[in-house]
Design a protein around this nucleic acid. Sequence first.
DNA 1: TATACTGTATATGTATACTATATACAGTTA
DNA 2: TAACTGTATATAGTATACATATACAGTATA
Lengths: 125, 125
Amino acid sequence: MKIIIANSSPDPIYEQISRQIKAQIISGELAEGEGLPSIRKLAKELQISVITTKRAYEELEKEGFIDTVSGKGCFVAMQNKEFLREKKMKIVEEKLGEAVNEAKFLGLNIKELQEMLYLLYEEDE
Amino acid sequence: MKIIIANSSPDPIYEQISRQIKAQIISGELAEGEGLPSIRKLAKELQISVITTKRAYEELEKEGFIDTVSGKGCFVAMQNKEFLREKKMKIVEEKLGEAVNEAKFLGLNIKELQEMLYLLYEEDE
DNA sequence: TATACTGTATATGTATACTATATACAGTTA
DNA sequence: TAACTGTATATAGTATACATATACAGTATA
């Protein structure tokens, strides 16, 4: 498994790790049921503390991307497509909700908002 | 000018102030060119430090809602409607942009996003 | 010009949250 | 038992955010 830590990045190490693993799960690069490196192994490889890798894995577990079994290891969760989809929706919904609240406060109507969304989406295709 | 500070609120004082003033400017309750209470006067009234009111005003100036003139005071900015609109758009765009990035990363298409947006907007009407 | 207002700049205290850690503990397998 | 897994607790360093006092500088006007 490839993980790259940039010390120059403003993002915390544990987040860099969990983000990269999450991306690999979503893209299918990491298959369902596949085992992840143990927190110790990964920590050694990346020259960081066990606690930090643990925290990265914790994030992933909280979001349902992996299952972790004490004494055995961490594994990519079996996720039926629908469940994964729900999870994605929820993440985006949160962000979108903030935008909507702001828009309402500022008096933008739904049409304006939709147009804006469309433009932003097409922007860098 | 009415400003209410809730010590129970998790939001910092300066933000409570700037948010309320911003709302009053947007709603027209505070007219263009109208003078705001001086940072000292407001600070005394709210029983807080001058620096805190100053900070609230700074926020407002950064966003273009007020103009502040050293030695004279702070005034609601002259804002042609178009300019105000642009500003609103920019604020919302930022939030919306985050949502779009997340959506793309997660592989949601524009149609799904638009639907989600619509539902969120209609939600609490 | 003196006075009484305006906003400004600097240095400081405090609290809180975040990141990362060491180390001792507990489960699993062979 | 040995060698691997993850877990829990206590701790330290750092960064950031919030609010402050106080000394400074611009402006108006009596």
